[in-house]
Nucleic acid binder design. Structure first.
Length: 367
RNA sequence: AGGGGUGUAGCUCAGCGGUAGAGCAUCGGUUUCCAAAACCGACGGCCGGGGGUUCGAUCCCCUCCGCCCCUGCCA
């Protein structure tokens, strides 16, 4: 709460300062004049995996606990419907993702936690950004080209405009930092382009040029069946992934059946260069134990997988099963989850509303 | 909008009047330090929807819907 009050004050300061910047088109853009604030959005598309946990959730918790930035975490349901969604699944997935956040250690009082559609400022700023972004920029997005492909005629307009809404998600909070994986780097670039163009076109220094927070190398969790492919909720084999909702038995079984090779674990990391499946298990162990992959090898060099796997399975069960249990406990009280989301949205709006209001004023909307 | 093509297992496709098959994928077993590979086995389909012809339709006819390609039209 303290954070929130502080940030509101800062927002107003930023807003006011903006007028004095207006005549000075040359002003150097810097994030230093903005409240340090992390925003991250995750699509509630269902099926939280170990990859999501180690690659995103766990880091979100670390950022929250570091206390150096305000942290805003958002379930982007408006993005989810750029592709067809079953309404019941969408609602369920949103609540389950919320449960996942909390079970993983996100404190809804420390962080701002909500679903996107409950903060209408996202969509409102999104429209303005639709008018800032250029068709050409969007057409160049590799994710658009990948997802729409040759069926672009079939894709929704929303899928095309997606990156502009994402820019709004970030900038409606004047977020200074966004954790990004490889796949989102280009979208963040576009967010920066939109902020810069807006600032330039209106002669203001209103939106920050958001910085990426690059994710660590070891956080890429690969498929348990094919160490060269990313662990994915859409893989046809459920044995290829560990779901956050898996039981202890399921987790143990999946690790036991994970693909490996016949060699023992090496002493040095470069011994894993040509062994993606082995490297993946070592990386997973390291991430779960919160040690480096080299430290894993220090402890287990020479081990065959017949002995390493049970140790890894025990560790995974110890770390993950409680999260899954807590998720299902939370899911039993839907009203409580909805209450948390509503409260998060309220706090989100307290930050976003003044920024949107100032944006509208800059653009020339009569208030 | 007109012409052509197409719609069968999760995917790629075969069948074409007697209520369906292959490969791959998935799952299980044997094997193996655990896995992989190999072998064995299992699961799996209102054959796009509706109507009609027929003793009987995935197969023929009508109609609707979806998708692909070509041509055209509108802005």
């Amino acid at each position: 709460m303290v954070h929130l009050v502080g940030s509101l004050t800062d927002c107003c300061v930023i807003g006011n300062r903006c007028d004095s910047f207006a005549p000075d088109g040359m002003s150097v853009m810097s994030t230093s004049q903005f409240t340090p604030r992390v925003f991250s959005g995750i699509q509630p598309s269902g099926g939280l995996t170990l990859g999501n946990y180690l690659g995103a959730m766990k880091r979100f918790v670390d950022m929250q606990d570091a206390g150096t930035h305000e942290t805003i975490y958002c379930m982007v349901d408006l993005h989810a419907i750029t592709v067809a969604q079953d309404p019941k699944d969408l609602a369920h997935n949103t609540r389950e993702l919320c449960a996942g956040f909390i079970a993983s250690g996100i404190d809804p009082e420390k962080s701002v936690l909500f679903n996107q559609s409950q903060v209408p400022e996202h969509a409102q700023l999104g429209w303005i950004f639709n008018c800032v972004a250029r068709m050409g920029w969007m057409g160049r997005m590799t994710q658009w080209k990948d997802k729409a492909g040759k069926n672009a005629e079939q894709a929704s307009l929303g899928l095309f405009a997606y990156p502009a809404l994402m820019a709004a998600d970030i900038l409606v909070y004047h977020a200074t930092h966004v954790p990004v994986g490889e796949d989102q780097k280009q979208h963040l670039e576009l967010t920066r382009d939109i902020a810069a163009k807006f600032n330039h076109d209106y002669g203001v220094d209103f939106f920050p040029i958001t910085e990426p927070v690059i994710e660590g190398a070891a956080t890429r969790v690969m498929s348990l069946r094919d160490g060269t492919k990313k662990m994915s909720k859409s893989d046809p084999s459920d044995l290829s992934r560990i779901n956050m909702t898996d039981t202890a038995d399921a987790i143990a079984k999946k690790i036991r059946k994970a693909k490996t090779d016949p060699e023992p674990l090496p002493e040095a990391l470069d011994g894993l260069d040509e062994r993606p499946d082995a490297r993946n298990l070592v990386n997973i162990y390291a991430a779960l134990a919160e040690i480096t992959p080299q430290q894993v090898l220090d402890q287990h060099a020479g081990s065959q997988f017949g002995t390493f796997k049970p140790v890894l399975a025990d560790l995974a069960v110890e770390k993950l099963a409680p999260i899954g249990t807590e998720m299902s406990r939370l899911m039993e009280d839907q009203a409580e989850i909805d209450r948390i989301l509503a409260r998060g949205a309220e706090r989100g709006r307290e930050i976003a509303a003044p920024i949107l209001a100032k944006t509208l004023e800059i653009v020339g909307m009569v208030r």
